[in-house]
Design a protein around this nucleic acid. Structure first.
Lengths: 166, 166
DNA sequence: TATTGTTATACTCTATAACTATA
DNA sequence: TATAGTTATAGAGTATAACAATA
Protein backbone atom coordinates (compact mmCIF):
# COMPACT_ATOMS: atom_id res chain seq x y z
CA UNK A 1 0.00 0.00 0.00
CA UNK A 2 1.46 3.31 -1.07
CA UNK A 3 0.52 6.84 -0.01
CA UNK A 4 -1.67 9.37 -1.75
CA UNK A 5 1.32 11.46 -2.82
CA UNK A 6 2.83 8.44 -4.54
CA UNK A 7 -0.36 7.71 -6.41
CA UNK A 8 -0.60 11.29 -7.58
CA UNK A 9 2.96 11.13 -8.79
CA UNK A 10 2.21 7.94 -10.66
CA UNK A 11 -0.85 9.49 -12.26
CA UNK A 12 1.27 12.38 -13.47
CA UNK A 13 3.60 9.91 -15.16
CA UNK A 14 0.65 8.17 -16.78
CA UNK A 15 -0.47 11.45 -18.22
CA UNK A 16 2.96 12.37 -19.52
CA UNK A 17 3.37 8.98 -21.13
CA UNK A 18 1.16 10.13 -23.99
CA UNK A 19 4.09 12.06 -25.45
CA UNK A 20 6.17 8.90 -25.68
CA UNK A 21 3.31 7.02 -27.27
CA UNK A 22 2.83 9.75 -29.86
CA UNK A 23 6.47 9.86 -30.78
CA UNK A 24 6.42 6.12 -31.34
CA UNK A 25 3.37 6.56 -33.51
CA UNK A 26 5.01 9.16 -35.70
CA UNK A 27 7.54 6.75 -37.14
CA UNK A 28 4.97 4.22 -38.33
CA UNK A 29 4.77 3.75 -42.10
CA UNK A 30 2.15 5.77 -43.94
CA UNK A 31 -1.15 3.91 -44.27
CA UNK A 32 -0.32 1.97 -41.13
CA UNK A 33 -1.70 3.76 -38.07
CA UNK A 34 -1.22 2.48 -34.55
CA UNK A 35 -4.32 0.33 -34.60
CA UNK A 36 -3.13 -1.57 -37.65
CA UNK A 37 0.29 -2.08 -36.15
CA UNK A 38 -1.26 -3.44 -32.97
CA UNK A 39 -3.39 -5.91 -34.89
CA UNK A 40 -0.46 -7.24 -36.87
CA UNK A 41 1.82 -7.40 -33.86
CA UNK A 42 -0.63 -9.53 -31.93
CA UNK A 43 -1.27 -11.82 -34.89
CA UNK A 44 2.46 -12.21 -35.35
CA UNK A 45 2.95 -13.05 -31.72
CA UNK A 46 -0.04 -15.27 -30.98
CA UNK A 47 -0.73 -16.72 -34.41
CA UNK A 48 -4.06 -17.02 -36.23
CA UNK A 49 -7.11 -16.16 -34.18
CA UNK A 50 -10.72 -15.05 -34.27
CA UNK A 51 -11.97 -11.49 -34.00
CA UNK A 52 -13.20 -11.98 -30.46
CA UNK A 53 -9.84 -13.26 -29.27
CA UNK A 54 -8.08 -10.34 -30.92
CA UNK A 55 -10.46 -7.86 -29.32
CA UNK A 56 -9.68 -9.37 -25.94
CA UNK A 57 -5.93 -9.08 -26.50
CA UNK A 58 -6.27 -5.50 -27.74
CA UNK A 59 -8.49 -4.74 -24.74
CA UNK A 60 -10.93 -2.72 -26.85
CA UNK A 61 -14.51 -3.27 -27.96
CA UNK A 62 -15.03 -5.65 -30.85
CA UNK A 63 -16.47 -2.87 -32.95
CA UNK A 64 -13.12 -1.11 -32.74
CA UNK A 65 -11.29 -4.31 -33.55
CA UNK A 66 -13.52 -4.79 -36.57
CA UNK A 67 -12.52 -1.41 -37.98
CA UNK A 68 -8.82 -1.94 -37.45
CA UNK A 69 -8.99 -5.37 -38.98
CA UNK A 70 -10.90 -4.06 -41.99
CA UNK A 71 -8.20 -1.46 -42.57
CA UNK A 72 -5.45 -4.06 -42.39
CA UNK A 73 -7.34 -6.49 -44.60
CA UNK A 74 -8.01 -3.78 -47.20
CA UNK A 75 -4.27 -3.38 -47.58
CA UNK A 76 -3.71 -7.09 -48.01
CA UNK A 77 -1.75 -7.52 -44.79
CA UNK A 78 -4.12 -10.15 -43.38
CA UNK A 79 -6.66 -12.63 -44.72
CA UNK A 80 -10.03 -13.33 -43.17
CA UNK A 81 -11.54 -16.72 -43.82
CA UNK A 82 -14.54 -18.48 -42.30
CA UNK A 83 -14.14 -20.67 -39.25
CA UNK A 84 -15.22 -24.19 -40.21
CA UNK A 85 -16.37 -24.74 -36.63
CA UNK A 86 -18.64 -21.69 -36.48
CA UNK A 87 -19.90 -19.96 -39.58
CA UNK A 88 -20.37 -16.69 -37.70
CA UNK A 89 -16.67 -16.42 -36.98
CA UNK A 90 -13.74 -15.41 -39.09
CA UNK A 91 -10.16 -16.54 -38.65
CA UNK A 92 -7.49 -13.91 -39.13
CA UNK A 93 -4.08 -14.68 -40.58
CA UNK A 94 -1.11 -12.55 -41.60
CA UNK A 95 -0.24 -12.68 -45.29
CA UNK A 96 3.38 -12.65 -46.50
CA UNK A 97 2.94 -8.93 -47.16
CA UNK A 98 1.68 -8.58 -43.61
CA UNK A 99 4.75 -10.29 -42.25
CA UNK A 100 6.95 -7.97 -44.27
CA UNK A 101 5.08 -4.94 -43.00
CA UNK A 102 5.35 -6.27 -39.46
CA UNK A 103 9.10 -6.70 -39.81
CA UNK A 104 9.39 -3.14 -41.03
CA UNK A 105 7.44 -1.86 -38.04
CA UNK A 106 9.45 -3.89 -35.55
CA UNK A 107 12.66 -2.66 -37.15
CA UNK A 108 11.64 0.98 -36.86
CA UNK A 109 10.32 0.82 -33.33
CA UNK A 110 13.17 -1.17 -31.85
CA UNK A 111 15.61 1.17 -33.54
CA UNK A 112 13.92 4.19 -32.01
CA UNK A 113 14.02 2.61 -28.57
CA UNK A 114 17.66 1.63 -29.05
CA UNK A 115 18.40 5.30 -29.71
CA UNK A 116 16.29 6.75 -26.94
CA UNK A 117 17.19 4.18 -24.31
CA UNK A 118 20.83 3.85 -25.23
CA UNK A 119 21.89 4.66 -21.69
CA UNK A 120 19.45 2.26 -20.05
CA UNK A 121 20.78 -1.01 -18.73
CA UNK A 122 19.36 -4.31 -19.79
CA UNK A 123 17.97 -4.71 -16.31
CA UNK A 124 16.24 -1.35 -16.25
CA UNK A 125 14.42 -2.03 -19.50
CA UNK A 126 13.36 -5.38 -18.09
CA UNK A 127 12.11 -3.77 -14.90
CA UNK A 128 9.97 -1.28 -16.74
CA UNK A 129 8.51 -4.06 -18.89
CA UNK A 130 7.69 -6.17 -15.88
CA UNK A 131 6.15 -3.37 -13.89
CA UNK A 132 3.97 -2.26 -16.79
CA UNK A 133 2.87 -5.84 -17.38
CA UNK A 134 1.95 -6.14 -13.73
CA UNK A 135 0.14 -2.83 -13.84
CA UNK A 136 -2.04 -4.05 -16.63
CA UNK A 137 -2.67 -7.31 -14.81
CA UNK A 138 -3.71 -5.41 -11.71
CA UNK A 139 -6.27 -3.52 -13.73
CA UNK A 140 -7.51 -6.62 -15.54
CA UNK A 141 -7.94 -8.70 -12.42
CA UNK A 142 -10.56 -6.77 -10.55
CA UNK A 143 -12.57 -5.79 -13.60
CA UNK A 144 -15.22 -3.52 -12.04
CA UNK A 145 -15.07 -3.88 -8.22
CA UNK A 146 -14.33 -0.21 -7.87
CA UNK A 147 -17.49 0.69 -9.75
CA UNK A 148 -19.77 -2.21 -8.98
CA UNK A 149 -18.71 -4.78 -6.36
CA UNK A 150 -18.18 -8.42 -7.43
CA UNK A 151 -21.94 -8.79 -7.54
CA UNK A 152 -23.07 -12.32 -8.25
CA UNK A 153 -20.50 -14.16 -10.33
CA UNK A 154 -20.92 -15.45 -13.86
CA UNK A 155 -19.75 -13.86 -17.08
CA UNK A 156 -18.17 -10.39 -16.91
CA UNK A 157 -15.37 -9.34 -19.25
CA UNK A 158 -17.13 -9.30 -22.59
CA UNK A 159 -15.38 -6.90 -25.00
CA UNK A 160 -18.90 -6.54 -26.24
CA UNK A 161 -21.24 -3.63 -26.65
CA UNK A 162 -23.81 -3.79 -23.77
CA UNK A 163 -26.66 -5.16 -25.86
CA UNK A 164 -30.26 -4.10 -25.45
CA UNK A 165 -32.11 -5.35 -22.39
CA UNK A 166 -35.60 -4.90 -23.80
CA UNK B 1 21.84 -1.46 -24.02
CA UNK B 2 19.11 -4.08 -24.17
CA UNK B 3 18.32 -6.63 -26.87
CA UNK B 4 15.76 -6.48 -29.64
CA UNK B 5 13.49 -8.97 -27.91
CA UNK B 6 13.41 -6.78 -24.81
CA UNK B 7 12.49 -3.72 -26.83
CA UNK B 8 9.68 -5.60 -28.54
CA UNK B 9 8.39 -6.73 -25.18
CA UNK B 10 8.48 -3.16 -23.93
CA UNK B 11 6.60 -1.94 -26.98
CA UNK B 12 3.91 -4.50 -26.32
CA UNK B 13 3.51 -3.12 -22.82
CA UNK B 14 3.30 0.41 -24.20
CA UNK B 15 0.49 -0.66 -26.46
CA UNK B 16 -1.41 -2.46 -23.71
CA UNK B 17 -1.11 0.53 -21.42
CA UNK B 18 -3.93 2.20 -23.30
CA UNK B 19 -6.44 0.03 -21.45
CA UNK B 20 -5.23 1.35 -18.11
CA UNK B 21 -5.38 4.92 -19.35
CA UNK B 22 -8.93 4.46 -20.56
CA UNK B 23 -10.11 2.97 -17.31
CA UNK B 24 -8.66 5.93 -15.47
CA UNK B 25 -10.45 8.23 -17.87
CA UNK B 26 -13.81 6.59 -17.28
CA UNK B 27 -14.03 7.71 -13.68
CA UNK B 28 -13.52 11.40 -14.42
CA UNK B 29 -16.48 13.67 -13.64
CA UNK B 30 -18.83 14.43 -16.51
CA UNK B 31 -17.87 17.58 -18.38
CA UNK B 32 -14.27 17.04 -17.35
CA UNK B 33 -12.45 14.98 -19.99
CA UNK B 34 -8.82 13.97 -19.62
CA UNK B 35 -7.49 17.08 -21.28
CA UNK B 36 -9.23 19.31 -18.78
CA UNK B 37 -8.01 17.24 -15.87
CA UNK B 38 -4.44 17.46 -17.16
CA UNK B 39 -4.64 21.24 -17.48
CA UNK B 40 -5.92 21.68 -13.94
CA UNK B 41 -3.48 19.18 -12.49
CA UNK B 42 -0.51 21.02 -13.97
CA UNK B 43 -1.82 24.40 -12.86
CA UNK B 44 -2.34 23.02 -9.39
CA UNK B 45 1.14 21.62 -9.26
CA UNK B 46 3.17 24.39 -10.93
CA UNK B 47 1.05 27.41 -10.18
CA UNK B 48 -0.06 30.17 -12.55
CA UNK B 49 1.52 30.11 -15.98
CA UNK B 50 1.21 31.17 -19.59
CA UNK B 51 -0.27 29.11 -22.42
CA UNK B 52 3.12 28.38 -23.90
CA UNK B 53 4.47 27.04 -20.65
CA UNK B 54 1.43 24.85 -20.18
CA UNK B 55 1.75 23.51 -23.72
CA UNK B 56 5.33 22.57 -22.99
CA UNK B 57 4.37 20.75 -19.79
CA UNK B 58 1.53 18.95 -21.53
CA UNK B 59 3.89 18.07 -24.38
CA UNK B 60 1.30 18.84 -27.01
CA UNK B 61 0.93 21.57 -29.62
CA UNK B 62 -0.26 24.93 -28.40
CA UNK B 63 -3.36 24.68 -30.57
CA UNK B 64 -4.38 21.64 -28.55
CA UNK B 65 -3.62 23.41 -25.31
CA UNK B 66 -5.75 26.32 -26.41
CA UNK B 67 -8.76 24.06 -26.89
CA UNK B 68 -8.37 22.33 -23.55
CA UNK B 69 -7.92 25.63 -21.78
CA UNK B 70 -10.98 27.10 -23.47
CA UNK B 71 -13.06 24.15 -22.25
CA UNK B 72 -11.82 24.54 -18.70
CA UNK B 73 -12.31 28.32 -18.74
CA UNK B 74 -15.86 27.95 -20.09
CA UNK B 75 -16.70 25.96 -16.97
CA UNK B 76 -15.22 28.55 -14.67
CA UNK B 77 -12.44 26.33 -13.39
CA UNK B 78 -9.68 28.72 -14.46
CA UNK B 79 -9.34 32.41 -15.21
CA UNK B 80 -7.35 33.86 -18.09
CA UNK B 81 -6.03 37.36 -17.67
CA UNK B 82 -3.57 39.40 -19.70
CA UNK B 83 0.11 39.27 -18.92
CA UNK B 84 1.21 42.80 -17.99
CA UNK B 85 4.65 42.05 -19.41
CA UNK B 86 3.42 40.93 -22.84
CA UNK B 87 0.00 41.82 -24.16
CA UNK B 88 -0.02 38.83 -26.47
CA UNK B 89 0.10 36.42 -23.55
CA UNK B 90 -2.48 35.26 -21.08
CA UNK B 91 -1.84 34.06 -17.55
CA UNK B 92 -3.82 31.05 -16.41
CA UNK B 93 -4.98 30.60 -12.83
CA UNK B 94 -7.20 28.08 -11.07
CA UNK B 95 -10.37 29.51 -9.55
CA UNK B 96 -11.73 28.26 -6.21
CA UNK B 97 -14.16 26.13 -8.22
CA UNK B 98 -11.19 24.79 -10.16
CA UNK B 99 -9.42 23.82 -6.97
CA UNK B 100 -12.54 22.02 -5.78
CA UNK B 101 -12.83 20.18 -9.08
CA UNK B 102 -9.17 19.27 -8.90
CA UNK B 103 -9.58 17.87 -5.40
CA UNK B 104 -12.46 15.75 -6.61
CA UNK B 105 -10.39 14.39 -9.47
CA UNK B 106 -7.42 13.61 -7.25
CA UNK B 107 -9.71 11.87 -4.79
CA UNK B 108 -11.23 9.64 -7.44
CA UNK B 109 -8.02 8.71 -9.18
CA UNK B 110 -6.00 7.96 -6.08
CA UNK B 111 -8.87 5.87 -4.78
CA UNK B 112 -8.96 3.85 -7.98
CA UNK B 113 -5.22 3.26 -7.79
CA UNK B 114 -5.47 2.33 -4.12
CA UNK B 115 -7.97 -0.35 -5.12
CA UNK B 116 -6.16 -1.66 -8.15
CA UNK B 117 -2.68 -1.55 -6.66
CA UNK B 118 -3.66 -2.70 -3.20
CA UNK B 119 -1.16 -5.55 -3.38
CA UNK B 120 1.72 -3.39 -4.63
CA UNK B 121 4.39 -2.38 -2.17
CA UNK B 122 5.30 1.20 -1.60
CA UNK B 123 8.63 0.53 -3.27
CA UNK B 124 7.12 -1.01 -6.39
CA UNK B 125 4.86 1.97 -6.98
CA UNK B 126 7.87 4.21 -6.55
CA UNK B 127 9.90 2.17 -9.00
CA UNK B 128 7.24 2.37 -11.69
CA UNK B 129 6.97 6.13 -11.17
CA UNK B 130 10.71 6.60 -11.45
CA UNK B 131 11.12 4.43 -14.49
CA UNK B 132 8.28 6.16 -16.32
CA UNK B 133 9.70 9.55 -15.43
CA UNK B 134 13.06 8.48 -16.78
CA UNK B 135 11.46 7.09 -19.90
CA UNK B 136 9.88 10.42 -20.64
CA UNK B 137 13.16 12.18 -19.94
CA UNK B 138 14.95 9.87 -22.35
CA UNK B 139 12.49 10.81 -25.06
CA UNK B 140 12.65 14.50 -24.27
CA UNK B 141 16.42 14.73 -24.21
CA UNK B 142 17.31 13.79 -27.74
CA UNK B 143 14.42 15.60 -29.35
CA UNK B 144 14.86 14.61 -33.01
CA UNK B 145 18.28 12.92 -33.43
CA UNK B 146 16.62 9.76 -34.63
CA UNK B 147 14.79 11.59 -37.38
CA UNK B 148 17.14 14.45 -38.15
CA UNK B 149 20.60 14.55 -36.51
CA UNK B 150 21.44 17.39 -34.10
CA UNK B 151 21.86 19.64 -37.12
CA UNK B 152 23.07 23.11 -36.25
CA UNK B 153 21.91 24.12 -32.82
CA UNK B 154 19.58 26.99 -31.93
CA UNK B 155 15.88 26.74 -31.14
CA UNK B 156 14.25 23.35 -31.49
CA UNK B 157 11.53 22.23 -29.09
CA UNK B 158 8.80 24.66 -30.00
CA UNK B 159 5.36 23.21 -29.20
CA UNK B 160 4.45 25.32 -32.14
CA UNK B 161 2.83 24.69 -35.48
CA UNK B 162 5.57 24.70 -38.18
CA UNK B 163 4.76 28.13 -39.60
CA UNK B 164 4.88 28.99 -43.26
CA UNK B 165 8.30 29.35 -44.87
CA UNK B 166 7.15 31.52 -47.76
C1' DT C 1 9.81 39.97 -39.31
C1' DA C 2 8.97 36.91 -35.33
C1' DT C 3 6.04 35.32 -31.61
C1' DT C 4 1.63 34.36 -28.73
C1' DG C 5 -2.50 32.59 -28.92
C1' DT C 6 -6.92 31.29 -31.55
C1' DT C 7 -9.54 28.92 -34.91
C1' DA C 8 -10.68 25.74 -38.93
C1' DT C 9 -9.98 21.31 -40.70
C1' DA C 10 -8.73 16.59 -40.76
C1' DC C 11 -7.28 12.13 -38.83
C1' DT C 12 -7.01 8.39 -35.26
C1' DC C 13 -8.91 5.92 -31.57
C1' DT C 14 -12.70 4.79 -28.80
C1' DA C 15 -17.51 3.41 -27.21
C1' DT C 16 -22.61 2.84 -27.75
C1' DA C 17 -26.23 1.05 -30.24
C1' DA C 18 -28.53 -1.18 -33.91
C1' DC C 19 -28.36 -4.75 -37.39
C1' DT C 20 -27.08 -9.52 -39.88
C1' DA C 21 -26.27 -14.18 -39.86
C1' DT C 22 -25.59 -17.83 -37.52
C1' DA C 23 -25.98 -20.98 -32.94
C1' DT D 1 -32.85 -16.28 -27.26
C1' DA D 2 -27.89 -15.60 -27.41
C1' DT D 3 -23.53 -14.85 -29.80
C1' DA D 4 -19.92 -13.27 -33.68
C1' DG D 5 -19.11 -9.75 -36.34
C1' DT D 6 -20.34 -5.34 -38.95
C1' DT D 7 -21.62 -0.64 -39.43
C1' DA D 8 -23.35 4.12 -38.19
C1' DT D 9 -22.75 7.74 -35.19
C1' DA D 10 -20.69 10.54 -31.75
C1' DG D 11 -16.97 12.12 -28.51
C1' DA D 12 -12.11 12.93 -27.20
C1' DG D 13 -7.27 13.82 -28.50
C1' DT D 14 -4.03 15.28 -31.66
C1' DA D 15 -1.54 17.88 -35.55
C1' DT D 16 -1.21 21.15 -39.51
C1' DA D 17 -2.13 25.44 -41.33
C1' DA D 18 -3.83 30.00 -41.55
C1' DC D 19 -5.00 34.15 -39.01
C1' DA D 20 -5.02 38.33 -35.52
C1' DA D 21 -2.70 40.98 -32.28
C1' DT D 22 1.56 42.38 -30.42
C1' DA D 23 6.79 42.41 -30.03
Amino acid sequence: MAGKAQYEELIRQFSAFGAVKREMGRLLPADCPGGSAAVMTLLGRHGDMRMSKLAELLAVDMSVTSRHVAHVADRGWIERFPDPADKRSRILRLTPEGHAQLDDIAERTTQLLAHRLSDWSDDEVGQLSRLMARLRASFDDCRAPAVRPPALSGDEQSTRTPAITT
